[in-house]
Simulated scan of single mutants.
Amino acid sequence: MNRHPMTKEGADKLKEELRRLKQEERPRIAEAIAEAREHGDLKENAEYHAAREQQGMIEARIRQIEGILSNAQIIDVTQLNANGKVVFGATVHLLNLDTDEEVVYKIVGDEEADLAHGKISVSSPIARALIGKEEGDEVTVEAPGGNIDYEIVKVEYI
């Protein structure tokens, strides 16, 4: 069984979602199903079928989260002694050498990646190019639209 890296922050977020699904959503759906059953004929009871469908989606998400967490290798970047190197979980400030635009990315596990929030997957081309480099290094990232040259301005472990 392969273990997948995940930040402590990402694991905590999934654990909270799992808690909410099990302790809040499950009982709410069970109550909705019981209430819909009281309305009589289940064949033509749209409320019952909607609640059962929602129950199935919640149970599927619970199984998915449990699977992700059981295969996760949780890494707390604040406990690493990386000495300025870009490692999994690091937050990296980059300067695009062509446009002088600065971007900030946090390198996270595949399940946590969210580009809109600056979180990139450790298996993405940019993360693979950055891993092992240090502040001040220049990195060329092979992107679908062509190569992009960055300078690593700052590496944080937060």
Results as ranks from 00 to 15, higher is better:
His4Val: 06
His4Pro: 05
His4Cys: 05
Pro5Glu: 09
Pro5Asn: 03
Pro5Trp: 00
Pro5Thr: 03
Pro5Lys: 09
Pro5Gln: 09
Pro5Ala: 07
Met6Pro: 02
Met6Thr: 02
Met6Gly: 02
Met6Ala: 03
Met6His: 01
Thr7Asp: 03
Thr7Phe: 00
Thr7His: 03
Thr7Val: 05
Thr7Arg: 03
Thr7Ser: 07
Lys8Arg: 08
Lys8Pro: 04
Lys8Met: 06
Lys8Cys: 01
Lys8Asp: 06
Lys8Gly: 01
Lys8Ser: 09
Glu9Lys: 10
Glu9Leu: 04
Glu9Trp: 01
Glu9Arg: 11
Glu9Tyr: 08
Glu9Pro: 06
Glu9Thr: 01
Glu9Gln: 10
Glu9Ala: 12
Gly10Val: 05
Gly10Arg: 08
Gly10Leu: 11
Gly10Thr: 06
Gly10Gln: 07
Gly10Ala: 10
Gly10Ile: 09
Ala11Gly: 02
Ala11Met: 02
Asp12Gly: 00
Asp12Ser: 10
Asp12Trp: 09
Asp12Lys: 01
Lys13Trp: 11
Lys13Phe: 06
Lys13Gly: 09
Lys13Ala: 12
Lys13His: 11
Lys13Tyr: 12
Lys13Met: 11
Leu14Cys: 02
Leu14Tyr: 04
Leu14Gln: 04
Lys15Asp: 06
Lys15Pro: 07
Lys15Leu: 06
Lys15Gly: 02
Lys15Asn: 02
Glu16Lys: 10
Glu16Asp: 10
Glu17Val: 08
Glu17Leu: 13
Glu17Ser: 08
Glu17His: 12
Glu17Ala: 10
Glu17Tyr: 00
Leu18Thr: 03
Leu18Ala: 00
Leu18Ser: 00
Leu18Asp: 05
Leu18Ile: 08
Leu18Phe: 00
Leu18Gly: 00
Leu18Cys: 10
Leu18Arg: 04
Arg19Tyr: 06
Arg19Leu: 05
Arg19His: 07
Arg19Phe: 02
Arg20Gln: 11
Arg20Ala: 09
Arg20Tyr: 08
Arg20His: 07
Arg20Thr: 12
Arg20Val: 08
Arg20Leu: 11
Arg20Gly: 04
Arg20Cys: 05
Arg20Pro: 11
Arg20Ile: 11
Arg20Asn: 13
Leu21Ser: 11
Leu21Trp: 02
Leu21Cys: 12
Leu21Ile: 00
Leu21Arg: 05
Leu21Gly: 00
Lys22His: 07
Lys22Gln: 10
Lys22Ala: 07
Gln23Gly: 05
Gln23Phe: 09
Gln23Ala: 11
Gln23Cys: 07
Gln23Asp: 10
Glu24Ile: 07
Glu24His: 04
Glu24Pro: 07
Glu24Gly: 01
Glu25Pro: 05
Glu25Trp: 04
Glu25Ile: 01
Glu25Asp: 08
Arg26Pro: 01
Arg26Lys: 08
Pro27Arg: 10
Pro27Ser: 11
Pro27Phe: 05
Arg28Lys: 14
Arg28Trp: 12
Arg28Gly: 00
Arg28Ala: 13
Arg28Asp: 13
Ile29Met: 13
Ile29Lys: 15
Ile29Ala: 13
Ile29Gln: 15
Ala30Lys: 15
Ala30Ser: 14
Ala30Pro: 15
Ala30Met: 15
Ala30Val: 13
Ala30Asn: 15
Ala30Gln: 15
Ala30Leu: 15
Ala30His: 15
Glu31Ile: 09
Glu31Gly: 00
Glu31Gln: 14
Glu31Trp: 14
Ala32Trp: 14
Ala32Gln: 13
Ala32Gly: 01
Ala32His: 12
Ala32Thr: 13
Ala32Asp: 11
Ala32Val: 13
Ala32Cys: 08
Ile33Met: 14
Ile33His: 15
Ile33Gly: 04
